[in-house]
Structures are given as C-alpha cells and as structure tokens.
C-alpha cells in the first residue's frame, strides 16, 4: 500500500491535535514539531546529502504545513500529510540549489565480458534472508549503499521503493519521463545489489 494512500484517513487522536494546531496552541505546536522532526529529518537526510539542506528542507516543510493547516481536509493522517510535504520540500531543495556535476552510476553497475557473460559470476548470499534486516551491520551497509548512489538515481530509488510512490507520480515530481524513472530505478537497484554483494556474499552466518 502506498505510504501516501488516501485510504488511511485522519484518526481520532489527530482531530484534536489538528484543532489545536489551527488555533495556534503553542504547546501543541511545539509537541507536534518535536515529535515529527526526527522522522522528517530521516526522510530529508535520505534525499539530500548535505546536512544543512536536510535541515532547511524540514524547516521549509513545517513553514508550508503551517500555512496549509487550515486547508488540510483530513483525507490522510496528519503525519502522512506532513511526510509528503517534507518529501516535496526536499525535492524543491534539490531543484533550486546550485547544481553540482552528477557523478556517474556506471562504476557501480555489474560488468560483462564481450560475449555478454558476467565478469564475476554471481554467487549466492548465504545465511537467512529474514535475519539480515535484524542485524545492525547489515542495516548500516544498506544505508551506506543507498547513500553512495548518485543523487538522481538515489532519489528515484527512495521515492519508488521507500516512499512507495508510483512511476507516474515520481515522473511528475522529478519532471522526467516515466521511462526515465524506470531506467534510473533499475540502475539504482543494480548498483545497490553490487554494493551489498561483498557484504552478504561473505556472510556465512
């Protein structure tokens, strides 16, 4: 189910909070900001490598949210609505900040011989797949691998696989074609696999 699905409407506990936020209740606002910021910062840090940009995007997200509170119709949970605003704020940051030359993803992709065979024949990842995600060092490796992806590819992976937006939504947000979304997603996943391969191939536990 999409993270931003409208089938998960605002819940009882948030109705009261929303009323307080709209009324400008300082305590409720502070609690909302304190409780929401860590999660939003996790989202913007995933999309923006610069800590300053990630923080700015969270701040921009709240500023947008404060302005839009009166118009919020309760079609989703308040937290989901705010999450989406933060994703948009991070994307806006990407668009407006000074562009650095994009590093190529080619070095992270699998290599093939001239006859089309793998240069390094793929080997299994031993161990119990269900256990990997429970282990700190594996989770750390996955996060580092995602961080290493070039920005244009990383953001497609984040929006499609993690935020669970569909191809058309991502295409619209990034102002690229659906075909380009698919190509970048596939290449990002291939690179993610290559980056995790040395970690999980060696793992015999």
């Amino acid at each position: 189910m999409s993270t931003f699905s409208a089938v998960d409407p605002i819940e009882e506990d948030e109705v009261e909070l929303l009323a307080k936020l709209r009324a400008g209740d300082a305590k409720a606002t502070e609690r909302w900001v304190r409780e929401s910021t860590p999660r939003l910062l996790a989202v913007t840090r995933r999309m923006l490598r610069s800590e300053e940009d990630a923080r700015d995007a969270v701040q921009d997200a709240f500023i947008s949210a404060f302005r839009a509170l009166d118009g919020f119709e309760g079609g989703s949970r308040l937290s989901t609505w705010l999450h989406r605003i933060a994703v948009n704020a991070a994307l806006m940051k990407l668009r407006t900040r000074r562009r650095k030359p994009e590093e190529s993803i080619d070095d992270l992709l699998p290599n093939f011989l001239e006859d089309g065979h793998h240069v390094n024949s793929p080997t299994e990842w031993p161990g119990n797949a269900q256990d990997w995600v429970e282990r700190d060092e594996v989770r750390q490796s996955v996060r580092e691998a995602i961080t290493r992806l070039p920005e244009t590819h990383r953001n497609v992976l984040v929006l499609r696989d993690i935020e669970e937006l569909d191809t058309a939504e991502v295409a619209k947000m990034l102002e690229i074609t659906p075909g380009a979304v698919k190509t970048r997603l596939h290449r990002a996943r291939l690179a993610l696999r290559e980056l995790l391969d040395p970690v999980l191939r060696e793992d015999a536990s």
């Binding site: 793929p122 797949a129 594996v138 996955v142 996060r143 993690i162 996943r189 696999r193």
Partner: peptide, 22 residues
C-alpha cells in the same frame, strides 16, 4: 548464475525497502 543474480537482485531491493521502511 543468472538465477542467483535474479535472487540477489530481489533480495537487495527487499533489503533496501525494509531497512528504510518508515
């Protein structure tokens, strides 16, 4: 080897999703 590649690709995608799940 391509069956292994297919399986590990699917695992990499699954791990990425699970580790970063909100």
């Amino acid at each position: 080897p391509c069956i292994v590649y297919l399986d590990t690709y699917k695992e990499a995608v699954r791990l990425g999703k699970q580790v970063c799940a909100r």
